[in-house]
Each structure stands twice: as C-alpha cells, then as structure tokens.
C-alpha cells in the first residue's frame, strides 16, 4: 500500500491484559482503506483480543485492561459515546457460526431493525443483497422463514457474514471464519471477500497461512501478544522477511 492510501484504522501502543496476564503488548499498526489486512499467528497470540479492541467487545470482559489507542477515521474508539453505533460500522464474523434463534430473514434484518430501520421493502432489498453478497441467497431464497439455526454449519457461517454486512459496515473483521466450514465453502467466501474489498476495509484473522497469502494485501504476524512483522504479502511470503520467525512461521517450521 502506498503512503497515499487513507488510513482507516490506526492502532498505537495497544496493550491488553486479562487480570494481569498480558494478551497484547503495545501493538502499533495501521490498516488502510479498502485493503485486506490479514493477521496470522499461533494460538494465544492475541489475534481475537485485537479484533475485540476494534469494536470494543472487549468492554464486556470485566477483568480486561486496555491501554493505548485504536482510531477509526481518526477518532479514538474508546472516546465514542454510542458504542452501538460504533459496532454498526464494524461487521464482525466469529470463528464458529452463530445463527441467532430466529428466521433466516430475521437474522439478516436483525441489526437494521435494532437500529430502527423497519421499512419492509427496503429491508427485503437489503436482506437479498446481503445474502447474495455472502453467496447464500440461491440456497435459501425459498425458505427465508426457516430458523437460521437449522442451516448447515457452512451455510450458517455465510448467514453470519450476510448479517455482518447488513449494516453496510465500513470495516469487516473476520476471526478464523473457515474453522467450521468446508474447503469449497471457504473458497466461495474468499471470492466474496475479494469482491467486498471494493467497498469495505477487511481485517482477516486466520490460522491458514495460505489463506492470508491468497487474500491479503498485507499480512501481520502476531506472537505472544507482540507484533513481530507487518509487511506486504510479497515480503512476508518471501525469503526477505525482516524477522527470521516470520519466515519460519510462514514456512510451517515454527516451534
């Protein structure tokens, strides 16, 4: 990414500890508008914690202590008064699919409705568009009234993505979305993400190194709560990494 690109998310000196145990250790990085930034790293590296700081889900963990700043479009997220409005700007997809206990339609219409958008025709359009974007529409168009929880795991994950898109977010965060999804569906979702980057900024946490290589513009390696290296994919997936550990991790020689 060139320096001319707009910074969408600016993280500086971000540290998080859970009851004294450090999960993130002064992370500083920027995410540019319309890029896909992927974050890789082994278990407990702090990847999920990082995402939770962006949309302030970390607030709901009582013993979490956060220091440093996360800015979106220049505004510190921790100064934001209306945290719900903030979260509507950030779509979040969790590792395991979560179909909410309501119909497929209602799942996608949930966030807009909760934000006060109830116009039926607009909702219909929105639901269809989001389901198309997440490559699920054709499979569910005849049974929009069925419970979302009755879909298969892969379908539910695409439903989750449709739901995350329903507020037309500026940022989409995905946390190991392919963990419960078959390879075919994973590839379909990856195609979806490539399309989406025209409209949104994507932060993709993944434990599939190849996925980061396929999708991302830049990749960051987290290790024990520290940012080891962040660079364009050309560098990260080459022999020219600045840190030896990055090369080892990418090559699967780690540990």
């Amino acid at each position: 990414m060139s320096d001319l690109a707009k910074k969408k998310i600016e993280v500086s000196g971000l540290s998080v500890s859970y009851g004294g145990v450090t999960a993130l250790d002064s992370i500083s990085l920027d995410v540019y508008e319309h890029e896909i930034l992927s974050i890789i790293g082994p278990a407990n590296a702090g990847k999920t914690t990082f995402l939770n700081c962006i949309n302030r889900m970390i607030d709901s963990i009582p013993d979490a202590r956060v220091q440093g700043t996360v800015k979106i479009d220049g505004d510190d997220v921790r100064q934001v008064r209306d945290v719900n409005a903030l979260r509507r700007r950030i779509g979040m997809v969790f590792p395991l699919p979560v179909g909410l206990p309501m119909s497929i339609y209602d799942n996608v219409a949930y966030a807009p409705r909760m934000a006060g958008k109830t116009d039926k025709t607009r909702l219909d359009e929105l639901v269809e568009r989001c389901l198309r974007q997440s490559a699920l529409f054709d499979e569910v168009k005849d049974r929009m009234g069925d419970l979302g929880t009755k879909l298969s795991g892969g379908q539910q994950q695409r439903l989750t993505i449709a739901r995350a898109l329903s507020m037309e977010p500026e940022i989409l965060c995905l946390d190991e979305f392919s963990i419960a999804v078959d390879p075919v569906t994973t590839m379909r979702i990856e195609e979806v993400l490539k399309e989406l980057r025209k409209e949104v900024t994507i932060v993709l946490v993944t434990n599939l190194v190849q996925q980061a290589k396929r999708l991302a513009d830049r990749t960051a390696l987290f290790l024990d709560g520290k940012l080891i290296e962040l660079d364009s994919n050309e560098i990260i997936f080459s022999r020219r990494t600045a840190d030896q550990r990055t090369f080892q991790y990418v090559q699967g020689l780690f540990g």
Partner: peptide, 24 residues
Amino acid sequence: TYREASLALGATKWQTVYKVLFPA
C-alpha cells in the same frame, strides 16, 4: 456466542435480552 453476536451487531443489551435471549 448469541450475546456476543447480537452485541457485535450494534444491538443494545436490552434488545439482546428481548430479541435473542427470550426466544432462545
């Protein structure tokens, strides 16, 4: 996970109780 999913979508705590937890 239901609570998290609902809150992450920008629903308030009450909306989450009302729309997600009660049905579940």
